[in-house]
Design a binder for these strands. Sequence first.
DNA 1: AACTTATGACTAA
DNA 2: TAGTCCTAAGTTG
Length: 322
Amino acid sequence: MPEGDAVRQLATTFNDVFAGSICSVSSPQGRFAASAARIDGWRLETVEAHGKHMFMGFVEPNAPCPSAPRQWVHIHLGLYGTWRFTGDPSSENPRHGLLNRLQGEPERPGPSGGHRAQRWSVTGSSEGGVWTPPAPVGQVRLRIVIDDAVADVSGPNRCELISDDERLHALAKLGPDPLVPGARDDTQAMATFVGGVRRRRRAIGELMMDQSVIAGVGNIYRADILFLAGISPMRRGDKISKKRAEDLWRLTCDVMNRGFAAGRLDTMDPEEAPREPIEGDEEASRWYVYHRTGRPCLRCGTPIAEKLMQNRRLFWCPQCQR
DNA sequence: AACTTATGACTAA
DNA sequence: TAGTCCTAAGTTG
């Protein structure tokens, strides 16, 4: 159940642990079997994230020319897709910062840090120096196995094998991604977002979830970022000033990058979090308004409101957001 | 066993 | 706006 920060984390994990390796690709569940067979034994070259979409680029290991076309596995996890990872406990592959960490090494800072929200375990059987991953659990659409790690995805909304052109076509439908490095100060990206908002009469609460306006924002971020921006989710895009829209872009970059760096979708500024957990309001230490219907706003005490917007639950503070 | 919920997005009407 | 798709976990009976 990811928003853009989690998808970018997943891409980072794949680049850290799986990229460069020859992969056994299969579909234990069967629904991706034909496509999996086409790239079984290929090398995973690179993994890219844009918004909630992930593209895994595979190349033939003995491709005749270095610029041979890739085949991309295009994954969109949707509402409840998940990846599960398992690593060989005896692996000493230095790429596995993650595995090292799970075996007790201190956290590694930097851009590759923070995989905490991912489901990793270190297990499987080893005989004669050959690691065998555990059997897939549940409905595994796609399994990718390398020498000392396995990744299983279940429940993806989309899982398809596509060409370079098809990938570009998918990317063309997406708005700017606030998690692309440098996005905050990318005047082009900001202008695209600001234009996408101010050109429309639709409510900003809907526009923030529209992946063609801004890619990667989901139901938690839209609620809490609009709270932090002090903007009512019902305000029409064309009724938002240029300056407010620009501030909203920078705020979104800041908040989502914090979530990405932390490996956890928390929007709360630690300074503002309640000093002690509030009975029956556990969300209050993570989020300002998300999932806090009827609870007092952390800033003004007004009960948090809820209504359905585009069939998703929307939360906001009627006092703080105008 | 049935029902509800979830950080999503598409299509038809 | 309603229906559809994808899956697992939690709650209710």
